[in-house]
């Protein structure tokens, strides 16, 4: 079953779990399963229009899903999905 790694700032919305297992064949199914298990995560990951927030990066193992098949990316046994908010700034 694919495992989703939850970054520390979002763990308060995932029952304090650092990783969540979700039965899914694609990244989209995995993310849907995640917010279905933990509804409070939804507004932190998605806009009101239902789009993934621009600063939320989703990786399948070490690959950005945007450069794979996005939500349609197929998952294999043992794949790990990581949710990583962007880290940037400056003055």
């Amino acid at each position: 079953m694919p495992q989703i790694q939850i970054p520390s700032p979002l763990r308060q919305y995932s029952g304090k779990q650092a990783s969540v297992e979700v039965p899914a064949k694609t990244v989209g199914e995995a993310l849907d399963g995640l917010v279905s298990q933990h509804p409070e995560l939804k507004r932190h990951l998605y806009t009101d229009e239902g789009k993934l927030r621009a600063f939320v990066n989703v990786y399948v193992n070490d690959e950005d899903m945007r450069y794979l098949q996005k939500e349609a990316t197929k998952l294999q046994d043992g794949d790990t999905i990581s949710i990583v908010p962007s880290i940037a700034g400056g003055y």
Partner: peptide
């Protein structure tokens, strides 16, 4: 614009997060 901006490649954060967890640590 490296003199007044920074950005960390998310894949670096993915790897750092993964390595940290194997050591019982976290990105804080």
């Amino acid at each position: 614009s490296a003199s007044d901006r920074y950005e960390i490649d998310p894949v670096e954060a993915v790897r750092i997060q993964r390595d940290a967890r194997t050591r019982g640590l976290d990105i804080i």
